[in-house]
Design a protein around this nucleic acid. Sequence first.
DNA 1: CGGCGCTTTGAGGGAATTCAAACTTAGTGG
DNA 2: CCACTAAGTTTGAATTCCCTCAAAGCGCCG
Lengths: 231, 231
Amino acid sequence: MRVEDAAAIRELPLFRDVAQDAFARLLAAGFLQRFPPGVVLIRESDRADFLHVVVEGAAELFAGTAGRETTIELVRPVGLFILAAVLNDQVYLQSARTLERSLILMLPAENVRATMEADPAFMRAVVMKLADDYRRTIRDLKNLKLRNGAERLANWLIRAEFEQGGNGTMEISVEKRTLAARLGMTPENLSRAFATLTEYGVRTKGARVEFTDRSALVAYAKPDPLVDLPD
Amino acid sequence: MRVEDAAAIRELPLFRDVAQDAFARLLAAGFLQRFPPGVVLIRESDRADFLHVVVEGAAELFAGTAGRETTIELVRPVGLFILAAVLNDQVYLQSARTLERSLILMLPAENVRATMEADPAFMRAVVMKLADDYRRTIRDLKNLKLRNGAERLANWLIRAEFEQGGNGTMEISVEKRTLAARLGMTPENLSRAFATLTEYGVRTKGARVEFTDRSALVAYAKPDPLVDLPD
DNA sequence: CGGCGCTTTGAGGGAATTCAAACTTAGTGG
DNA sequence: CCACTAAGTTTGAATTCCCTCAAAGCGCCG
């Protein structure tokens, strides 16, 4: 593992306060592995054996039932999945696959739990991380139940544009069908949602998106800090 | 507070392992109060000042944006809300109101956090509770994204009937409009979903529901332990 | 018994999905 | 470098699902 990768992981809120030697031991117990795109890393209903850290690339968390499938979350560097399943030693409720060529660190669940038991500072960070995860999911639930497809897209775009510098242009970094599933709609419907937003100054060319009338878009999207902002 | 109420709270997984004196102090710092139906206990966007425990009655967690509103969860004795917001000292993402005359214990957030910092066993229980909460919300998200209204109702009924003894009859313990919001639909639509399920042996008379053909209902609902079962 | 609120039913409209086909893009091999 | 292929995206049409609005039915409580 490269020094800068270890440093980036070390700086995650989850690991920032872990004692240095405990962190080193945790990392040493892990496996760092590179995967091509489209590889399934974990499967729902499997026992949660590893805490996964996305060091490079991107992962998609998805789930299905009765032959249907949906995307729950997209994880980019440096992010992790799925802490909750690892901690209570149960099965995953979500599957995960790589979206691109990715570098993934796998920390054995047993070591994560042991580290938590041994280091109160880490356990405290785990509490905060889980609380954040819970709240993020509640936001998602509200987003889904309270907005229609075009509104969800509009708010997603506003957020993404802000994260990419807020200069009125942005790039969609996943395939549109993945974005569609993430936003709870079909690819066809996403395409129509983009068409709807044209009216509010959203111009698209492939993965590039431009805002020509931000205030109109915001007025339509009605972003809400209790739905859209991260913690 | 009555002895049996304190005992019931003590037996919650969250509090079971707290040191006796710490638990006594936490309870002593709380306020036990009775509310009539329909009282708003917390409001989203308010600072999370208390961890609420439903000792008697029932509470509804709901949230809104842009003039719309939906129900997120129903909490019955002995259950609590909302641990995550209390722990990271942020605003509530959900509001809560009593559905019936209810007895609510309010534990000051500050005391909950202090107890956690002082008692590793409690912090450990907090971790498990948060992990459960997260997983329950993920299940809900899957339920919502992967099933239509009638399927959600069917699975909800199967679960409720099981919890009420599994003898083929059950009682819906909330108003149907509340159930509708909980399941992510309108009251009219819930009524039509019940009509759809008639075909699979679901008979209703007011709040009473009877299954006359469980296997047909199950075949339609396709219950999935990764969506429907609690942890 | 009467009234109020909840539930159900009906009609119409809007949103999202499916199925199908055309179009665009990116990558491959000639 | 271009043609070709495969995959992803967009567009169109038909259908299903869900919502809104309205009114009637029902149950509960004063």
